[in-house]
Nucleic acid binder design. Sequence first.
DNA 1: TCCATTCTCTGACCATAGTCAGAGAATCGT
DNA 2: ACGATTCTCTGACTATGGTCAGAGAATGGA
Lengths: 297, 297
Amino acid sequence: MEAEQIEAVRRFNRVITQRIGALEDAYLSREHSLGLSRLLWEIGSEGAEVRVLRSRLSLDSGYVSRQLRRLESEGLVTTDPDENDGRVRTVRLTDAGASERALLDRSSDELAASMLEPLTASQRDRLVAAMAEVEKLVIASLVRIEITDPRDPDARFCLRSYFAELGRRFDGGFDPAQSIPAGDQEMSLPDGLLLVATVQGSPVGCGALKLHPDTGIAEVKRMWVSSGVRGLGLGRRLLECLAKEASTRGTSTLRLETNQTLTEARRLYETAGFVEVEAFNDEPYAHHWFQRDLKPV
Amino acid sequence: MEAEQIEAVRRFNRVITQRIGALEDAYLSREHSLGLSRLLWEIGSEGAEVRVLRSRLSLDSGYVSRQLRRLESEGLVTTDPDENDGRVRTVRLTDAGASERALLDRSSDELAASMLEPLTASQRDRLVAAMAEVEKLVIASLVRIEITDPRDPDARFCLRSYFAELGRRFDGGFDPAQSIPAGDQEMSLPDGLLLVATVQGSPVGCGALKLHPDTGIAEVKRMWVSSGVRGLGLGRRLLECLAKEASTRGTSTLRLETNQTLTEARRLYETAGFVEVEAFNDEPYAHHWFQRDLKPV
DNA sequence: TCCATTCTCTGACCATAGTCAGAGAATCGT
DNA sequence: ACGATTCTCTGACTATGGTCAGAGAATGGA
């Protein structure tokens, strides 16, 4: 990494935190403290359970409790016990609370507008485009990839999303019963593994391996990337991560099959060193079979 | 301004403040509080006067004093009275303080590096480029233009910079004595005015008017934009601002002359509605004379 | 049934980051 | 020379944003 780039990032951080900080001071410090406003915001129009608020903002339970009492005494929220679980309490905004929250929303809009306002139309377009690029790449830098139990909720979410996408994209839909299966056992060590990619706790992609240590072959399955984070090279990162995991577990050849409608996946495999080979199984949904040799570690 | 753009800016602000905030928590919260670290940083390797620190960080004098006592008691700084002015005290870092500051510096580097580290080389380049663009445009949105007394230090700085630049760029240099002068009086109301553009307190550009109410003509003089903020349309903003000020003061025609080496200025004048005319004065350094009619207010 | 756990709440603390009033010394302006 | 101003400092006070221990009610699991 070059010193110049680091200097550029530092300069950016300095300018941006100053600017946004100054604006937040000016706009958001209405009658409530920052903490109260944050809580009010996080409750949302639907209401929220106290324990959810606590974990989302990662705050102490006593602290949240006191803040809620204060909001209550100002008539901005009401808290009622949960119907199913008497320990849990649910906070809801009153009308006054909702309008207070709307005010915060408007302030945020004004804050954003004040960054655009002094600029010409073309400068605004450039700023918005550059911000989108920064945002995207910063999110990319937040991706964490970890081996995850297939029964984990995040893993379940990814697998469900994967099947849903195949259903949407395959000509004639997708029926898991027709396809070669990959059960939880096959995606758990030592038979295989599942990688889940997350951004700040939310699952955004996955990829699995079925290991066959006796033959030195491993199959790549369940490659999926959420539409929100496409174009960030996450597919490639997952694939390389799978290759590394396979390699350290005695795999010399990686195999996978794919459907003709998944063109971007095919391009990914080709540019990642896979070569198309004869069909090595009878997966009914596959049109292309790929293979890649791994360098031993 | 479009709602979409505002939404994009808000999303950017959210993502970036979260990201930078989280990183700062992780990296910068060493043994000193944020306030002490900020002060330590601001003192710099050269040392600084207490009053300068106070105004730069816009902090209460009592507060700064107490913070300094604390840094002193930890052996990180020394404060000595100024040689010339016994009221002023100058703070300097001790060796321990300097190494503490170097540590902060390194943390900032690591923080920046951690944003780049997970990315591929091409993504890094894109991120740095987009950050530079955002930074530039955000700075552009921070520019304030105000009528300023020519004897004000900021004004003096701009005028000095203006002459220095002419000296560098004109073939054969520039000698103010040879040129048609514009004294402080001529750039002060009611005879004229000087606009100074600042970004967060630092002067970055200027432009002056010499008014001639009897003829309805005003002359534009001393147009200068700091090299650090070029390409942001600041010249145009200054020029439009001058035109507006002239217009409200009974000017119907704006005039200016310029040197052939200032090509970007000439392009600015042409695209801002000025047309080249015969020489209307005998300014020895001028090669082109321009004029523009103003719509009455 | 009963013990462990979960969830919320209260009370007692604490550090940080200030603000405000005023005092004392040095300097400036006239 | 002297009154106004500038600069720094001390003391008293405050709000914010927490942490920690423990109590009491509800629930879950064996």
